[in-house]
Every structure is written in structure tokens, then in C-alpha cells.
């Protein structure tokens, strides 16, 4: 009972009139009518437990129902609520308004993607890249049911587990200037997923995937900025996947005449 009494007294000391208000500047874009995006500022009342996503939801519910953004799980696992918050790619559900108050915060659609509307970006290019890496196990040789399951040791598992943690939030693409400069670049998350399969002991598809890795859309577009791995909310380290594959692609480039096992032409 004691804690309850304490909480009541604390509540008494902070009446509703002390409601904090934060300014949220949102980059708006209406494809039907706007030539280019423009900023609008909203004064949003908030409590300490409110995320930036909740702030944006408050705007939609109270100021402008046309404000468009993606969200789903509110717990940093669905990967849909990524936004540029003060210019930094973040999941808006795990960024808190209290950490920015009393300054104004700016919210913008993820960088390096075309803006579809307001905070929603066009992900079709990214989806094509995910498809292009052949994101499934390509068995080394055909295997019958009678042969039973694949056996994998913890050590083999540890080779790729990190790269399975990607939630496709695309913050790494928003962090990568090379993606912005060349939208055809396969990019960090797709390379992390590619590496995840290449490193899987059950997979034999590395040579097939090499065509893409070693191509002009491949890993050599990366100049090791490294910000992709910095902003990754799941510590996938996609930048390392890209860079390790530069070494793999270089080996393939110079040794392809010795072992004619595929790769790009």
C-alpha cells in the first residue's frame, strides 16, 4: 500500500496544467498536389512514456488525418516504423520524445528512398534486391527424405546466426550514401541476408549468388562508410557482410580461371 500512497502524492505535485508540449516538424509530401515536400510543425502534448511514433500518431488523430506513415508492432521487431529523426535513421517506436524535449524534433521519411507520401517510402527497389539474392537454402546436392535432417553444429550455426536478425527495417539503406548515389547498388541489408545463406553449412549457393555480388550493382559500390552497421537496431553488422564479400568477389575475380565453378560472366 505504501507505494500507491506515494504515487498519489507525486501525482498531486504535478497537476495536468504542467503538460509538456514538444514541437514536431514533419516533412509532408502529397503526390496528388505537391511538387516537392515541405515541412509542417505540430505542437504535440506528450508524456514521458511516449515514443516518436506515438507523437506522430497523435498528430494524425488530432491535427491531420491525412498524415501517412507505416507502423505495426510498436516494439522494435516489425521493422516498419523507420524514420529520419533529426536526420538520423531510427525506429520511431523505440525513440522517445522525452530524449529530445525541449528541442523541436524533425521527422522525415527514410533517406535514399523515393518518398511515396509523407513518411512512407517506396520500398519496391528494396524488395527486388531481396528477391535477387536468392534468399533460401540452395542445397549442395539433392537430398532425399530418407537421408533425414541436416545436422548442424553450434559452431556452424554461429557462423550465420547474427545475419538472421535482420528485420528489413531499411535503416541501413537510409544510412548508406552509396545507395542514395546509386539506387541500383544491392545495399547492406540484402547483402547481410545473402551472407546469411552463404555462411549456412546447409547451403551451396555461394557460386550462384556470386554473379550479383561481383557485378556492377554488387559489393564494390560500398566505400566502407560503415554507418549502416552503426544504425542497425538489431546489431546485424550488414557493413561487415558487404566488406567480407568484397574479399570473396576478389578471390572469384582472380581465381575464376583456376576453378571454373560459376560466378558472373
Amino acid at each position: 500500500m505504501v507505494p500507491l500512497v506515494k504515487r498519489q502524492t507525486r501525482k498531486g505535485k504535478h497537476p495536468m496544467s504542467e503538460q509538456k508540449i514538444i514541437e514536431i516538424e514533419v516533412l509532408r509530401y502529397k503526390p496528388e498536389s505537391d511538387q516537392a515536400p515541405h515541412s509542417e510543425v505540430y505542437k504535440v502534448p506528450f508524456t514521458d512514456d511516449m515514443s516518436v511514433l506515438q507523437g506522430v500518431q497523435y498528430i494524425k488523430d488530432n491535427f491531420d488525418g491525412s498524415l501517412t506513415f507505416r507502423w505495426s508492432c510498436r516494439m522494435a521487431i516489425c521493422g516498419s516504423c523507420g524514420m529520419m529523426i533529426n536526420g538520423i535513421p531510427k525506429l520511431s517506436c523505440e525513440s522517445f520524445l522525452r530524449d529530445y524535449y525541449p528541442n523541436r524534433i524533425t521527422v522525415e521519411a527514410l533517406a535514399n528512398f523515393p518518398i511515396e507520401k509523407d513518411l512512407v517510402v517506396d520500398l519496391s527497389g528494396f524488395i527486388e534486391k531481396l528477391e535477387a539474392i536468392q534468399p533460401y537454402i540452395i542445397p549442395k546436392e539433392p537430398r532425399t527424405l530418407e537421408q533425414g535432417e541436416y545436422i548442424q553444429t553450434p559452431e556452424q550455426f554461429s557462423q550465420y546466426i547474427q545475419f538472421t536478425s535482420c528485420i528489413n527495417c531499411t535503416l541501413c539503406y537510409a544510412a548508406c550514401p552509396q545507395v542514395g548515389l546509386n539506387p541500383d547498388f544491392i545495399g547492406p541489408a540484402a547483402m547481410a541476408l545473402l551472407h546469411r545463406y552463404n555462411m549456412d553449412s546447409r547451403d551451396g549457393g555461394q557460386a550462384q549468388r556470386m554473379e550479383l555480388v561481383a557485378s556492377e550493382e554488387g559489393v564494390y559500390n560500398c566505400s566502407a562508410v560503415g554507418y549502416c552497421s552503426e544504425v542497425c537496431p538489431k546489431h546485424v553488422d550488414p557493413g561487415n557482410a558487404v566488406n567480407v564479400n568484397k574479399i570473396n568477389a576478389a578471390k572469384d575475380y582472380f581465381l575464376r580461371f583456376l576453378s571454373p565453378k560459376g560466378g558472373a560472366q
Binding site: Y29, P31, E32, A36, P37, A111, P114, I115, E116, D122, P177, G180, L181
Partner: peptide, 8 residues
Amino acid sequence: RRPYVRPM
């Protein structure tokens, strides 16, 4: 649809 590409 008219996706807007921001300048780099």
C-alpha cells in the same frame, strides 16, 4: 503515384 526522389 509520383514518388519524390530527394537530391543528394
